[in-house]
């Protein structure tokens, strides 16, 4: 392998692997939303798009070698007894906030998906199709505006 490429991979891709994945996922989702003709495929794209952002947030909160962000009993008591003593090892805990935020975002994503599926179902019952071009065909002459 070319040395330049190898060093690029080592410096830019490998350590930021998560972020690259999120960008790639996002693009896949965006592509599906724009280019797919089938409404359900559009929704799958939308889900991928949202998941990419969730991945991004979760990556932000993660740290190398960190555990779950729950203080154990001893540390907690120690902290109470010695206020101001920076005994708690920050690097030992993942940042919980982005994860908590993503719980909400997942809920939002799920409800959006559910709603969108319901709407897609409604479209199917009234147009008999979930292919965008067929639906527009049925709407002629008022369809293209």
């Amino acid at each position: 392998m070319e040395p330049a490429l190898a060093s690029f991979l080592q410096e830019q891709i490998v350590p930021k692997f998560n972020y690259w994945v999120y960008v790639v996922l996002m693009m896949i989702g965006l592509y599906a939303m724009i280019a797919k003709n089938n409404l359900i495929k559009k929704l799958i794209g939308m889900s991928i798009f949202q998941t990419a952002i969730i991945l991004f947030y979760v990556s932000v909160g993660a740290k190398d070698g960190a555990g779950i962000p729950i203080l154990d009993h001893h540390t907690y008591e120690h902290a109470l007894e010695h206020p101001g003593d920076e005994h708690i090892d920050r690097d030992g805990y993942a940042n919980p906030l982005p994860h908590v935020l993503m719980l909400t975002a997942i809920v939002v994503g799920v409800s959006t998906l559910g709603l969108a599926l319901a709407i897609a179902q409604r479209i199917f019952t009234s147009f008999g199709s979930i292919e965008e071009d067929e639906i527009l065909e049925k709407l002629q002459p008022g369809g293209h505006d």
């Binding site: 939303m33 409404l39 959006t112 709407i119 897609a120 409604r122 479209i123």
Partner: peptide, 17 residues
């Protein structure tokens, strides 16, 4: 009506983005 459902679907996609 049915057109509303279709427009709403487009809105879902754009709005989510």
């Amino acid at each position: 009506n049915r057109r509303a459902a279709l427009s709403s679907f487009n809105y879902v996609i754009m709005g989510t983005v």
